[in-house]
Design a binder for these strands. Structure first.
Length: 667
DNA sequence: GACTAACGTTTTTTT
DNA sequence: AACGTTAGTC
C-alpha cells in the first residue's frame, strides 16, 4: 500500500498502532521507540481513511508540542487538513470551551486567566490580610495545596489544615469577584460544564470523534475525568505514553491513568513499542537494569537496534571542580578527535544550581553552550509588568495586575494608598479599579495621592478607549503608553549593568512585538493574554536556534536526545534528591535517572563527587544508591585519577597537557 | 514614599 | 554564593 506516510518504514508494533483506529488504544511507547512518528502516522492514517480533519482532536502536554505535531502532520498530508484539526493542550481546549459557556457557572465570558505570578501575588495579599501575626506559610505552599486538591477533584475549601482551607475559600472568592480563573479552574470548570450539561457534552462528542492524548503519563486525575467527558461511545480514544518516564508526580501526574487505563476505557488494545532506535545496546541495557528496580510498572523491555557500543562510564570525582573540568576537557577532546559538533554534547543535572561550575569550565575553554530553562521569560519583571498593563487595557477589573503596576513606575501611589483602595473595594464589593474610579473613594485620600490616582485612571481609560472605540492597534497603544509613562527609563534606573539595561528593553520589545504579531493574525487582545498565560514558560524558540553544547536539567531533557551525554552529580541527596527520599518518592527519582540515561545515543558518562560546594559550604557526598542498581555488564566504573593516570602513561601528550591545564585552571 | 541593610532561603516545571 | 524579601531609616 502506497501511503503518504511511508507505512513500509514502520516496524510491526508501530504498524499495529497506526492501523488500530477504532476503540480505546493504549500505546506504551518506551524511550526512543519512534513515538512521535507513530502518532503522526496514525493521525495521517485517519485522514487517509476519510475521517474529517475537523473531527480529530490531539491533546499534547505543551503548546510547543502541539504546534510541532501539527507541523509534522502537515508535512505528511496536506497543510490544509493539518490546519483544520484541533491540536492543543487540555488547558487551551478548556479556554475555548469556557469562552463559549462559562456563564453557566456564573462567570462572565470575558474572564481573565490568572498567571502563576498573579496567583502568587493574590495569595501573598491574602496571607497578609488573613495571616496577620506570625504565620510563616509561603504563598507557593498554599497554592500548591489548593492546586493538588483541585486536580484530585476535591474541594480546596475542605483542606485538612483549617488555615489553608480558609485561605482557599478566600482565594476562590477573590478570583470570582475579579471574574478570573486560575489554570486548574480551566480544567475544573471545563469538566464541570461537560458533565452537567448534556447538550454541551454531546456537541463536543459529535465535534471530536477521534481523540489522541500524548504524554499520557503526565496527565492528572482531573485531566482523566475531562477526557472521560470528552470521549463517548464507541470510545475512539488513543493515549500514548511511558509510565517509566513519568517524572511529574510532584505536580500531580497520576501514573494510575496509564497503569489502570482499562479501568477508565474497557478492553483497550494495548500496543507496546519496545524497539529502540536511539541508543546503543550498552546504554539501553544499563537503563533497563535500573528501571527494573521499580515496582508497579507496565513491564516492557526495550530492545536495541544498535548492537554493541562503548561501555557506559561511571566516574568517581574528588569534587565538583574536577567534575566540571573533566567534562569540559572530555568535550574538547572528543570534539577534535572524533569530529563532533558542539551540539552533539549534553550535560544533564538534577538542579539548576549545579550548572554554574559547568558553565565556568566551558566558558574558560571557549566552548559554546546553551542553557535550557534557567530564567523563565514570563518571570522577568519587565515582561510581567508589560503584560499587566496589557491586561488592564483588556479588563482593568482584575486586581492583581492592577496592583502590580499601580506604582510601577513610581507615580506617588504607594503601599498605604493601595491598601486603602483594596479595603474600600472589598467593603463595596467592587474591583480595585472601580474604587479608583469612584469619587467617593478618592475624596477620602490626600490631595497628592488623589491627583496621582486620577492621572492613572485617565491614562488607562484613555488607552482603553483608543483600542475599544477608535479601534487602534493595541500594540501601538500599549507601546505609546509605556513611552508616555517612561516605563523603560524608570526600569533602567534600577539596573546595574549595561547588559541588564539592554535585556530589559528587549523584554519589553518582545512582548510588544508578540502582541503586534498576534493582532496581525486578526486576533484580539484578550486572546493574546490567554496565549501568554498558557504559553510555555520558557523561551523555547530561541533555544533551538542557539549553538553549542547543551546544559539542561534532567526534567527538561525529556523528549530530547544527544549523541554524547554526561550525567553529573550521581550522589545520594541529589539523585535521589533528599526531599524525594523524605517524601517516599524514590521511584520517581529512579525514573528521572532512567530518562537521563535514555537520552544518550552513542556515549554516556555518569559522574559523582566525594565533596561538593553546596550553598557556599563544602559538603561531603556519598555515591548514589542507584549506581549499585546498574548492571555491570556494559559498565566501566573508574575514577578521575585512573583516567588521568592512563592518559599520562599513553603517548597522547597533547591530551596530558590539556588535562594538566585543566587541573591548574581549576586551582 | 523611597532607599538601604540585614535577613533567610535554596528540586524538579507546565498550564 | 546569590537571590529575593523585609525591616528600618531618611
Amino acid at each position: 500500500m502506497a501511503s503518504p506516510f511511508s507505512f513500509d518504514s514502520l516496524n510491526q508494533a508501530q504498524r499495529q498502532a497506526v492501523g488500530a483506529l477504532d476503540g480505546p488504544v493504549l500505546i506504551l511507547a518506551g524511550a526512543g521507540t519512534g513515538k512521535t512518528r507513530t502518532v503522526t502516522c496514525r493521525i495521517a492514517h485517519m485522514l487517509e481513511k476519510k475521517i474529517p480533519a475537523d473531527q480529530i482532536l490531539a491533546v499534547t502536554f505543551t503548546n510547543k508540542a502541539a504546534s510541532e505535531m501539527r507541523e509534522r502532520i502537515g508535512g505528511m498530508v496536506s497543510k490544509k487538513a493539518a490546519s483544520e484539526m484541533t491540536v492543543c493542550t487540555f488547558h487551551s481546549l478548556c479556554v475555548r470551551l469556557l469562552r463559549g459557556g462559562i456563564d453557566k457557572l456564573g462567570y462572565k465570558r470575558n474572564f481573565s486567566i490568572c498567571s502563576h505570578s498573579d496567583q502568587v501575588g493574590l495569595m501573598k495579599q491574602l496571607l497578609v490580610r488573613k495571616g496577620g501575626t506570625d504565620e510563616k506559610v509561603k504563598a507557593e505552599t498554599v497554592l500548591g495545596a489548593i492546586s493538588k486538591a483541585k486536580n484530585k477533584g476535591l474541594d480546596p475549601a475542605n483542606l485538612e489544615d483549617d488555615f489553608f482551607a480558609h485561605l482557599a475559600t478566600a482565594y476562590q472568592n477573590e478570583l470570582r469577584a475579579q471574574n478570573a480563573v486560575d489554570f486548574d479552574d480551566l480544567l475544573l470548570f471545563g469538566e464541570k460544564i461537560l458533565r452537567e450539561h448534556e447538550d454541551v457534552r454531546e456537541m463536543f462528542r459529535r465535534r471530536f470523534t477521534r481523540v489522541t492524548v500524548d504524554e499520557f503519563q503526565d496527565t492528572n486525575s482531573l485531566q482523566m475525568q475531562l477526557l472521560q467527558q470528552l470521549v463517548g461511545p464507541p470510545y475512539h480514544v488513543c493515549v500514548v505514553g511511558d509510565d517509566d518516564q513519568s517524572i511529574y508526580g510532584w505536580r500531580g501526574a497520576e501514573t494510575a491513568n496509564i497503569l489502570e487505563f482499562e479501568r477508565f476505557f474497557p478492553n483497550p488494545k494495548i500496543i507496546r513499542l519496545e524497539e529502540n532506535y536511539r541508543s546503543t545496546h550498552a546504554v539501553l541495557h544499563t537503563a533497563n537494569s535500573l528501571i527494573q528496580h521499580n515496582r508497579g510498572r507496565r513491564e516492557k523491555i526495550l530492545r536495541s537496534t544498535r548492537m554493541g557500543g562503548d561501555k557506559v562510564r561511571v566516574v568517581a570525582m574528588p569534587g565538583d571542580d574536577e567534575e566540571a573540568e573533566f567534562i569540559a576537557e572530555e568535550i574538547l577532546a572528543a570534539k577534535s578527535a572524533v569530529g563532533r559538533t558542539w551540539e552533539d554534547f549534553a550535560v544533564l543535572f538534577r538542579t539548576n544550581g549545579q550548572s554554574r561550575k559547568l558553565e565556568l569550565a566551558l566558558r574558560e575553554r571557549k566552548i559554546p553552550y546553551r542553557m535550557v530553562g534557567a530564567q523563565s521569560f514570563y518571570d522577568r519583571r519587565e515582561v510581567r509588568d508589560v503584560l499587566a498593563y496589557a491586561q488592564l487595557l483588556a479588563a482593568p477589573d482584575t486586581d492583581v495586575p492592577l496592583l502590580r503596576v499601580l506604582n510601577a513606575p513610581n507615580r506617588g501611589i504607594g503601599q498605604s494608598t493601595a491598601v486603602l483602595a483594596t479595603d474600600w473595594s472589598r467593603e463595596h464589593h467592587e474591583s480595585v479599579w472601580q474604587a479608583l474610579c469612584d469619587p467617593d473613594f478618592t475624596a477620602t485620600i490626600g490631595p497628592k495621592a488623589r491627583h496621582a490616582i486620577e492621572a492613572f485612571v485617565a491614562l488607562i481609560a484613555g488607552a482603553k478607549n483608543r483600542i475599544d472605540l477608535n479601534h487602534e492597534n493595541p500594540a501601538d497603544v500599549l507601546h505609546g503608553m509605556l513611552k508616555e509613562i517612561e516605563y523603560l527609563q524608570w526600569l533602567e534606573r534600577g539596573c546595574k549593568t549595561d547588559s541588564e539595561r539592554q535585556q530589559r528593553g528587549e523584554g519589553i520589545q518582545m512582548v510588544i512585538d508578540s502582541l503586534r504579531a498576534h493582532v496581525a493574525k486578526g486576533k484580539k487582545l484578550q486572546s493574546f493574554l490567554d496565549d501568554s498565560a498558557l504559553a510555555s514558560d520558557r523561551e523555547d524558540e530561541d533555544i533551538e536556534k542557539k549553538q553549542g553544547a547543551t546544559l539542561i536539567t534532567l526534567h527538561a531533557s525529556k523528549g530530547l536526545e544527544f549523541p554524547i551525554v554526561f550525567l553529573v552529580g550521581l550522589e545520594e541527596g541529589f539523585l535521589p534528591h533528599s526531599r524525594s527520599v523524605a517524601d517516599g518518592t524514590k521511584d520517581e527519582e529512579r525514573r528521572l535517572l532512567y530518562v537521563g540515561i535514555t537520552r544518550a545515543q552513542d556515549q554516556l558518562t555518569m559522574t559523582y563527587c566525594s565533596k561538593r560546594i553546596k550553598w557556599g559550604q563544602e559538603t561531603g557526598c556519598q555515591p548514589s544508591s542507584f549506581i549499585g542498581e546498574l548492571d555491570g555488564e556494559h559498565l566501566d566504573h573508574t575514577s578521575y585519577d585512573d583516567i588521568l593516570g592512563a592518559e599520562a602513561s599513553s603517548d597522547d601528550l597533547a591530551s596530558f597537557f590539556g588535562n594538566m591545564k585543566g587541573m591548574l585552571d581549576g586551582i
